Simulated scan of single mutants.
Amino acid sequence: MKCVGLCPAFVVELWGVLEGLCCVRRLGFTKVELNTDSEAVGQLVKEGRVTSLLGNTLAKQRKLLEFDWIIDISHTYCEVNKCVDGLANFL
């Protein structure tokens, strides 16, 4: 859990991706499946486009993606992943 202040859901999703990647990197995983319920976030992370508003967060993600590991980024509807959706709504 992280306090990101008052911001759009899109930015929260990007922070979630960054925190998740940092966590699995610290745990030493070399093959990761990243699922997001936001197609736009998944596409932005895959393409590595940096906008001025989100530049710092995206730059950190880009740096993590360049490490020697395999990350499969895909879109998953939140209705399909009930466990994660339930946890997100609980917190």
Rank of each mutant, 00 (worst) to 15 (best):
V24I: 02
V50A: 13
A9D: 11
L44S: 10
R26S: 05
I73W: 11
R25A: 11
T30P: 07
Q43F: 03
N89M: 09
L87K: 08
N35D: 14
G28V: 07
G5W: 00
E13V: 01
G86Y: 08
G42C: 08
G16K: 03
S52K: 08
V84H: 12
V24C: 00
V17Q: 00
E13S: 04
G5A: 04
C23K: 10
R25I: 07
P8F: 07
K2N: 06
W15K: 03
D72I: 15
L65K: 02
L65Y: 07
T51Y: 07
K46I: 10
D72T: 15
T76H: 07
N89R: 15
C83W: 14
L14W: 01
K63C: 03
E13A: 08
G48A: 02
G42W: 00
W69G: 01
L54K: 05
R49E: 04
K63M: 09
V84L: 11
D72E: 15
G42P: 00
C78L: 08
M1T: 05
E79W: 00
C23H: 13
L64G: 01
G42L: 02
L27R: 10
F10Y: 06
L53V: 04
K2L: 14
C83I: 15
E66P: 00
K2T: 15
G48C: 05
W69L: 08
